[in-house]
Design a protein around this nucleic acid. Structure first.
Lengths: 209, 209
DNA sequence: GTAATTTTAGACCAAATGTACTAAAAAAAT
DNA sequence: ATTTTTTTAGTACATTTGGTCTAAAATTAC
């Protein structure tokens, strides 16, 4: 029965997001959806397997997003758009970001998956930046590896904005996503050309309207 | 006996850093230093109290650092210098950053302390930036709240570089600290004036030499 | 309709954890 | 020297957790 497996994932996601991955037990998840814990174990041997399955869901959604937004030739517009949508997806699976380290510490398999994904993501950003430079949206680098640093900063930001918002923010989820996706795109602003900055500020206006 | 209390903190810090806050138990800490767990509880009622005490140590060291570096009129130089030293201190207490959310979730007291400290830190950066603009090291803002965004980014970065490095890096601690403090200061580069950029690149050279 | 399989629940186990309580040992105060 | 206070160890308890095993129930295949 696929329905039960899906139920498990849905409830696990809900509980992980609300109470943190580590403090939710297999038994809790099972009890919440009204099945025995041994039944849950039958479907997912360990909590780690649930985490991997949920991460898989996240990947599928991210790939879908990628497909639809890859064909926008306007760098700035595409940046605003895909960031917002990407952050929404990430936020749905926020427990993965909030308990990043403790999850990966005891889940070598998921760690390997994430390392691979991370490489792909970095390459994507590198290509996007190269293209943006060619198209005259971003300026040339002003010192060695300047854009490698930017990419690394992007990685850190992407992995941790949710964690940070969890601590410091009291505003509703939707506003959090808007605030931090807006903050993310601003990482690019000082690297833009005059042409790029014009489009950027236009998008910023459109956003706040 | 103060010695035993200090032993507890030292060993707790070591274990927390190595294995993660959540997975280390009071009994483990006690056993490692050869005392009974009930004795440890006598000194620190809960693990939360140990975390608070360790965070207090961190605060003391950070305040000391602040005292010594506050009087450097050269913004760029002071930025490089205090970042490196600050990151070294943070790294000593890295479990606090790695398990940020799970610690604060069940330690309301520590959370309040951290929120206060965070405000102080933000104000410090705001003042430093204002001064840097006045001194001609940083340019004026180019859109509303541009530097508020920078400060927020700084906050996120400061709280999460250790967590990120823990996942992605295999290099030794000292190199991690150097890499990420270098990355941190680069957040400022694109906001610098020509004058500022010159000094910055000079410092960068001096660093890599 | 019967056999095979998949799914489910329940009982049981061993290990770990926080916590409380008691009493002995050590140190300090008088 | 003896009292008082502080520090320490030991024990015991209830709870939780992941995990195994067995058998019943439900579903699917033939």
């Amino acid at each position: 029965m696929k329905k039960n497996k899906k139920n498990i994932l849905n409830k696990a996601l809900e509980l992980f997001n609300d109470f943190g991955y580590t403090s939710v037990s297999i038994r809790q998840i099972a009890s919440e959806i009204g099945i025995s814990h041994s039944n849950l174990i039958y479907h997912y041997k360990t909590k780690n397997d649930i985490a991997i399955a949920l991460h898989q869901e996240l990947l599928v959604k991210a790939l879908e997003l990628n497909k639809t937004t890859i064909h926008n030739p306007n760098f700035i517009e595409s940046l605003f758009d895909s960031t917002k949508k990407g952050f929404e997806i990430l936020y749905q699976y926020r427990f993965l970001m909030i308990d990043f380290n403790s999850i990966l510490r005891e889940n070598e398999k998921l760690k390997q998956i994430i390392l691979e994904v991370e490489n792909i993501r970095a390459t994507m950003y590198r290509n996007a930046i190269n293209q943006a430079v060619k198209q005259g949206y971003m300026r040339e680098r002003e010192y060695d590896n300047e854009y490698d640093s930017l990419i690394l900063t992007i990685k850190i930001f992407s992995d941790s904005w949710i964690s940070s918002s969890e601590i410091y923010e009291t505003i509703p989820s939707q506003e959090i996503i808007e605030k931090y996706s807006s903050l993310f795109v601003k990482l690019f602003f000082p690297f833009l050309t005059e042409k790029g900055k014009k489009v950027f500020l236009l998008m910023l206006d459109r956003e706040s309207a």
